[in-house]
Structure formats: structure tokens, C-alpha cells
Design a protein around this nucleic acid. Structure first.
Lengths: 340, 340
DNA sequence: GGAGGATATGTGAGCGTTAACAACGGGGTA
DNA sequence: TACCCCGTTGTTAACGCTCACATATCCTCC
């Protein structure tokens, strides 16, 4: 007699017995094979329902060699950018029938990314998206197991993987040009952490426009994305004589700068104009509402899945692709014509 | 002759052959079994390294009946609260040796949560954390497959699953009492979406304190967590004669309200005091810096894993547990004694 | 009316791992 | 010397599913 107290969940064979068919027929029903008589299908479905049967995807994965799971490696998903991107990835993946296995890195370094990729590979994910926009993540992408497709978000220019990114240079140009058009003599810059690839792009675009217009190019102030670092930079900038315009590398730091100026009695935009970057949902309600450059993180996420799926279909004869999502300038109340 | 162009990744048997041992010995090395001679272990390790062998976790999971993967069902991970909680979950899970498979729901309804739980169960996750703080998520938790442990974050009081939550009532009491202590006659409230369980708790705590002090209890204004809804509520509140204090159910809406007051020339905190909820990283840099109630989302995430792991260890003889994370009042510049 | 092609179902093997048990060799003890 | 035990290794059988193939059943057409 079998010990009924330690009953395992039903398997395909149980369903088969109950429906009076072979396990293979059950499999066919589950996989929507065309050649199953309607009456048989109904009987199988009934048995499945009655037994509360659930297919064991692990066993399935073992034989098909596909887990229908994608891996995502990301850095600090507490930040709005990564969080939104990952959200876009997850939605797109699920609507394509894939699960998402997440690894959030708390510190970013080559070894960490390499480990994460290794774990994911062991898990048998069918593809991987790496949202690790720091330069130090790039080397790890180079020696990823070749048999598994990888897409990088904001990844370096290492030609070995597909990349989805926002055109940071263009975004920075829009911001800077807007300020020059307003009559500002030059534009100061509060940058992000130097290791981030996006930071470079934003500096490049900003510097380009200034150089093309023959304006002085001030030394960028360092920041770390946090409002506090923006606040500190703001405190320093307020002391710069003749300053009238600042381009800040993200909205949180712009908020900090706004706060610093408010405390020092510097009026925005009357005395200083400020442009941010990202367009987080809060920016519209800052004091004053922030002029900024919108990044469509959702689109970035969706595109990374799009590229990944294409790559998975194509298999070996895949050539790496690149997709650039355009940023959009959003004018609000933190910028104004320079006061003459 | 074997087709060398379609070479599969090496398996345990390949390693075994190369090292001159049986595949079982390779398995023993991989699983740190004590009874393997040091010299043998070294030979196996060398073979593994040489072949670039990676263990197939899918096959392993099939026989052990454990995937070492936990499922997380969450709602809109774009929001700071859920994002931080999920981040805490992921960190805690990984440091306990588990992977995290994510499902982000874009709309929350019983069927959606039920489906997500079903998919996750099919995937063979060892446990599930549900971060779906809406009332409509609760029914789905009732009929979750009994053989898989579940922890709910901010879940209802349905005694069937373990729950981790922040003491919303207490948080709201702290906020309201602070305002009364400042001399305000009463406190208005901008609430969150009515379906959210937390919203109830905050209203309850706020109402309690007002009632205990014998103060009038104004009708709460509805919001949806977004800055915009806070802005709209702020516009309406500014028109209320004699209003001097508002308790807002989250920081984003408080930002919106701040914006509305600024536009209408109502000075904060001189004319109106505002308290928020959450303490997002930006709050400290609002204009003025926001007095608020901090929720430690990271702790919520860590505790949910803690409870889940305990439950997984205990197995059948597990009685559902409850953990409450205390909120903390954070005084800043958006509140002041009432102007007499 | 029988060949032949579709349609419907069953059978056996194998995916890569771990669990259970068997086998082998060397000490220590009686 | 014979015994047993323990540390070390090998052998075999699952785990629950899909794939490839074999078989049975039905209809159609000449």
C-alpha cells in the first residue's frame, strides 16, 4: 500500500491513467498539437482539472533545452531609471511568453557582473539583458558564454553584443542649445558618477554645443545622481560670479541644486536657469517645474527584449545590432531668457 | 563520426571521463561531499575548469525537487515603495542562495494575481512573496497551491499566509499627533487609492488621533499616489477656509500639494503645515524639505524573505507568522507651529 | 474492395542530474 | 589471521517530460 499521507502532486501519467489515454496524448493536449480528437482532448482536460494537475516545467526544460526564462542583470533597481527599464523588460518578456529572473547588483564591478552571468547561465536562461551602464561592467560582457544571447542596455561600444541605448549626446545637446538660445553666455554642468557611460555622453553633447558656439567651457562639477550631491554642487555654483545657467545630469541632482539655490535666495529661473535629465514623474512638480530631457526607459526595456528575441531566433548567424532611443526635450518653468 | 559543428556544452559524464572517475564522483565534488579524496577532487576540478563545464541546474532541480528560485509577484515596480521592497527581497534571497523570478502586474486584480501564482508554481519556485498591497489581491492568496510557502507584503488579514507589513496606523498617528502638538486645530488628509490596504491604515491612524483629541474630522481627499493627484487635491484644499495642516498619504502627492500651494501663494509651513509618508530620497530636498514618516522598505523585503525561508524549513507544521516593521517620524521644514 | 494517405494514438528512449545502494580496499581490534 | 568498519568510489535507477518512431483507425479514390 502506498503511503497516502506523503502524496506527491499528480504527474502526466496520473492524468493519462485517469483519462484512459497515454501520457503522450496528455502532452499533446497540453502543447496544442493539432492531431487530437476533440472528444479525447475534452476527456484529458477534464482529468487535468479534476486532479489539479500542473505541468512540471523543469522536466520540460530538461528535454527541450529551453527554460523560457530570460535573465536580467541590473544595478540598483531602486533608482528610477533602472527600475523603469527593468519594468519595461519584464512586461515585454512576459507578453512574449518568457519569465524573468532578476539579479540586482549592489556594487558594480567586472567580477560581480561575470558571476551574475555565470549563475544565470547555470540556471539555463534562454537569453540575458544586462542593465549595467557602468564602464566596469563592459569587460564581463566580453567573455560571456558564447552560446547564450546577450543584449546590453547603455553598454559600451564593445562590438560583441547588441546594445540598446538612449542618445545621451543628443539629449545633452538639446538641453545646452536651449539654454544658449535663451541668451545665456555659457552653461555649467553637474555630472554623474564618472564610471557611468551615460555621463560621458552627456558631457560630450554639452561640451560640443558650447565649443561650436565658441563659448567658455567651465569645469563640470562631480555628482553621484543623489539629490544631496546636487545640493552640494548647487551650493558651490551659487558662489560662481556671473553664472546664469546649469545643465544637470539628472533630475534628482537638479532637485538638490534647486534646494541649494532656494536656501541661498537665488531665484530660479530669474537668476539661474536649470535643465535636468530623465524627466522623472516628480519633475513636473518641482519648485519650479523642471525643464528637462525625457528618456523613455520603458521603450529601452521593450527594445532590449525585441533585440534579444531576434537574436535568439536567428541563432548562430546573428550579427550584433544596435538600437538608439531618441530623448525628448521638455520645456517647463526652470529656464528663462537671461536677465539683461 | 560525431558532428563536431553542433557541439553541446559538456556534461558531467564528460568531466568524469576526462578526470578518470565516475560521474557520481564529479557530482560529489560539486556538492562538497566530505568523502572525496583531496587528490581526486583536484583532478575533477581541473577537468571541470579545462572543459569549461557548468552544472545544469535544470536537471538538478528535476531530481532534487528544488529550484532554489523564489517567485516575486509585485505591482508596478516603477514606484519607489515596491521597487525598494523588491530590491530588498532580491538581495536577501540571493545572499541566502536563491534566485528571484519576477512577475510585475500592470493592473491588479484577483485573476491576475492568481495567474501569476499559477505560472510561478509551474516553474517550480520553492516559495513566493506577493507584494500586492491591494485588497483585490487578497482572494487570490486564499487558494494558492497549498504545497508552496507564501508570504504577503502588506497583505490583508486573511490568516492563511504569513504577512510582513509596516505599521501604517502608527505612522499616521505619529504624523497627525505631530501636527496637533504644533497647535493645529485639525488636520486634513489626502489619501491614496481606496483599494490599497495601506491607505486604510493611514486613514485609521489619522482619524483615531483626531477623534481622541475631540477635533473635527474632515472628509479625506482622494488621490492615486501620483504628484498630479496631490496637486489637484492641493488646489482644492487651498480654498478651504481656516485650513492649517494636511497629512498626505505619500511623498509624491505631498510634492504635488506643495506645488499647488506655491502656485497659489500659500506659504508652507507658515500658512499650512504638510506631512508626507514614505520618505523617498527626494523628500529632504523638496521646497521646503518635507516632514514625513519613513517606511523602511528594505527591511520589509528582508523580513519577507526571512519569514519565507523559515516557512520553507518548517514545512507542513508551519503556523503563519506576522512581522510588523515600525515606521519612523522624520521632522523637517514643512511643518511649523500654527500661526496665531 | 483493396491500396494509400491522412488522422489519431501508443511505445520506448533519453535529457543531465542526484539518491540509494553496492563494492572495494585498508586499518584497527579481538 | 579473521573480522568489521569506515572512507572512497562505482553502478543503477529514478525525476517528469518530449521526441522519434511504430501502430491502429478511418476515409477516399480508382
Amino acid at each position: 500500500m502506498s503511503p497516502s499521507h506523503e502524496r506527491r502532486p499528480p504527474v502526466m501519467a496520473d492524468v493519462a491513467t485517469k483519462a484512459g489515454v497515454s501520457h503522450q496524448t496528455v502532452s499533446r493536449v497540453l502543447n496544442d498539437h493539432p492531431n487530437v480528437r476533440a472528444e479525447t482532448r475534452a476527456r484529458v482536460l477534464a482529468a487535468i482539472h479534476e486532479l489539479g494537475y500542473r505541468r512540471n516545467m523543469v522536466a520540460r526544460a530538461l528535454v527541450t533545452r529551453h527554460t523560457r526564462t530570460l535573465g536580467v542583470v541590473s544595478f540598483d533597481t531602486t533608482l528610477y531609471g533602472p527600475a523603469s527599464t527593468v519594468y519595461g523588460i519584464e512586461q515585454a518578456a512576459r507578453s512574449a511568453g518568457y519569465f524573468v529572473s532578476m539579479v540586482s547588483l549592489k556594487t558594480i564591478d567586472t567580477a560581480g557582473v561575470r558571476d551574475a552571468l555565470g549563475y544565470l547561465a547555470e540556471q539555463g536562461v534562454d537569453g540575458i539583458v544586462v542593465v549595467a551602464p557602468q564602464r566596469s561592467a563592459a569587460p564581463a560582457l566580453a567573455d560571456v558564454p558564447t552560446d547564450i544571447p546577450v543584449v546590453a542596455v547603455e553598454g559600451g561600444h564593445s562590438g560583441d553584443v547588441s546594445v540598446v541605448s538612449v542618445d545621451q549626446v543628443h539629449g545633452a545637446r538639446l538641453a545646452t542649445r536651449h539654454l544658449l538660445d535663451l541668451g545665456h553666455e555659457t552653461v555649467w554642468h553637474i555630472g554623474g558618477p564618472p564610471d557611468w557611460l551615460e555621463v560621458e555622453g552627456r558631457i560630450e553633447g554639452w561640451r560640443d554645443v558650447l565649443a561650436a558656439a565658441g563659448r567658455p567651457i567651465p569645469e563640470p562639477l562631480p555628482g553621484d545622481w543623489s539629490p544631496r550631491s546636487g545640493y552640494q554642487a548647487g551650493l558651490r555654483l551659487a558662489a560662481v560670479p556671473g553664472i546664469t545657467a546649469v545643465f544637470v545630469a539628472n533630475d534628482q541632482m537638479a532637485l538638490g541644486a534647486l534646494r541649494a539655490f532656494a536656501e541661498l535666495g537665488v531665484r530660479v529661473p530669474e537668476q539661474i536657469s536649470i535643465v535636468g535629465f530623465d524627466d522623472i514623474p516628480e519633475s513636473e512638480f518641482f519648485t519650479p517645474p523642471l525643464t528637462t530631457v525625457r528618456q523613455d526607459f520603458g521603450a529601452v526595456g521593450r527594445w532590449s527584449i525585441e533585440l534579444l528575441l531576434r537574436q535568439m531566433e536567428a541563432g548562430a548567424e546573428w550579427s550584433h545590432e544596435r538600437h538608439v532611443v531618441p530623448p525628448r526635450f521638455v520645456a517647463r518653468a526652470s529656464t528663462a531668457p537671461v536677465h539683461t
